[in-house]
Design a protein around this nucleic acid. Sequence first.
DNA 1: GAGCTAAATGCAACAATATTGCATTAGCTC
DNA 2: GAGCTAATGCAATATTGTTGCATTTAGCTC
Lengths: 140, 140
Amino acid sequence: MVQDSIRILQAQGHKATRPRKLVLEILEEMDRPLSPYDIQGVLRQRGKYLNHVTIYRVLDILCSLNLAHKMLSSGGFVRCSLDMAEGCHRFMVCQHCGAIREFADKELCQGENEFARNFGFHAEHHHSELAGLCSRCYRK
Amino acid sequence: MVQDSIRILQAQGHKATRPRKLVLEILEEMDRPLSPYDIQGVLRQRGKYLNHVTIYRVLDILCSLNLAHKMLSSGGFVRCSLDMAEGCHRFMVCQHCGAIREFADKELCQGENEFARNFGFHAEHHHSELAGLCSRCYRK
DNA sequence: GAGCTAAATGCAACAATATTGCATTAGCTC
DNA sequence: GAGCTAATGCAATATTGTTGCATTTAGCTC
Ligand SMILES: [Mn+2]
Ligand SMILES: [Mn+2]
Ligand SMILES: [Zn+2]
Ligand SMILES: [Zn+2]
């Protein structure tokens, strides 16, 4: 829910502004990776306006609080669908329909961390995207 | 070695051209993620010139053959330091010095695949980047 | 080595994405 | 509601990525 995210924003000392609510609404509603300009376009269609710089800045904050994530393969942004503090968040990306599914698994993180440790590398967080086919697209 | 990559290119029906050799040389030598424009800049310093479109096209081919990879977090390109067909390639990225270390682990891939399968998702390949500190930077 | 041809390059123009500084506006606290 | 500070909008600019087309060149044939 957008309201929850807004509360988290405020708890961190950020203001509950119109642009922030609008961006959160769009991300929640569209449910696929959107670029800042995509978001601006959707809003424009609805007769609302936000400067793209503002959208970038909103997304920066949302990502810093893990309320949204930047998909690295596409550059688009999605709303986080998991609880914060569930460890690092991973994504399944359907190559056919573009659908995103977020998941988390502590064992995977642990496995990666251990592997890295053997190289003397101390991992702080992970970003992982699986490309493939979602169940619906696979059936074809 | 650059020569090895060139041979692979030719085996796939691509020509061994000057731009391709130059890009491979720079990637090998610099050993950190470089954007196409970075590569152009390094070459320019050495009195050589490549159009940026050419560099993009060379990198496209190298990536399609897994001779290079695009780092998703930074957008830069690195030369692949592993054998092809060793499974999917993962990266440790030092947040302090920017160093990249590539690795592969079949068990991690398998773990991710199984996890995804439980959601009905059929993964084809993975892209994974671990952010943290390399051994050298960690010691400080 | 000269000639041929498909592949690759360079160029120009453009599109998309991202950042900065500064004047103005609007949440929030009191 | 007034005041203060964070946030927004705007303008300008930087960076990154793409397309179509004319020209060049690598690799092949002779
Ligand atoms: Mn998340
Ligand atoms: Mn590799
Ligand atoms: Zn799908
Ligand atoms: Zn380091």
